[in-house]
Computed example of a mutant assay.
Amino acid sequence: MGKRLLRLVVDVLFTAGHRRLFLGCSPDPAVRSYSFYRRQGWVSTGSFDRAGDEVLEFVLRREAAT
């Protein structure tokens, strides 16, 4: 269910013209979201937000858009 919801949100944002998406995620590998987003193709930007969450980025790849 989580993968489906994330894919829907990503698709809506890309359809709206966004090509780079960002989100904050726990930097702790013991937290489930840490692996979840990375398995979906999100990568660390190497930065952290004010809450201490790691900022992850997803970039639309040409082959993913088709």
Results as ranks from 00 to 15, higher is better:
residue 2 G to N: 11
residue 2 G to I: 05
residue 4 R to C: 01
residue 5 L to R: 02
residue 6 L to V: 14
residue 6 L to Q: 02
residue 8 L to K: 06
residue 8 L to G: 00
residue 9 V to M: 01
residue 9 V to I: 09
residue 11 D to E: 12
residue 12 V to L: 06
residue 13 L to Y: 02
residue 15 T to F: 04
residue 16 A to K: 11
residue 16 A to F: 01
residue 16 A to H: 02
residue 17 G to H: 02
residue 17 G to P: 05
residue 17 G to A: 03
residue 18 H to G: 00
residue 19 R to H: 03
residue 20 R to I: 05
residue 21 L to R: 01
residue 21 L to S: 00
residue 22 F to A: 02
residue 22 F to Y: 15
residue 22 F to M: 05
residue 23 L to R: 05
residue 23 L to F: 02
residue 24 G to M: 05
residue 24 G to S: 04
residue 25 C to S: 14
residue 26 S to C: 05
residue 27 P to N: 07
residue 27 P to D: 08
residue 31 V to A: 11
residue 31 V to S: 09
residue 32 R to P: 08
residue 33 S to Q: 10
residue 38 R to E: 12
residue 42 W to P: 06
residue 42 W to K: 13
residue 43 V to K: 13
residue 44 S to T: 15
residue 46 G to N: 10
residue 46 G to S: 12
residue 47 S to I: 09
residue 47 S to K: 13
residue 47 S to R: 14
residue 48 F to S: 13
residue 49 D to M: 08
residue 49 D to H: 12
residue 49 D to Y: 09
residue 50 R to M: 11
residue 51 A to E: 15
residue 53 D to W: 03
residue 53 D to C: 12
residue 54 E to F: 07
residue 55 V to C: 08
residue 57 E to Q: 14
residue 58 F to L: 15
residue 58 F to K: 11
residue 58 F to N: 04
residue 59 V to S: 09
residue 61 R to A: 11
residue 62 R to F: 09
residue 62 R to T: 14
residue 63 E to C: 06
residue 64 A to Q: 14
residue 64 A to E: 15
residue 64 A to Y: 07
residue 65 A to K: 04
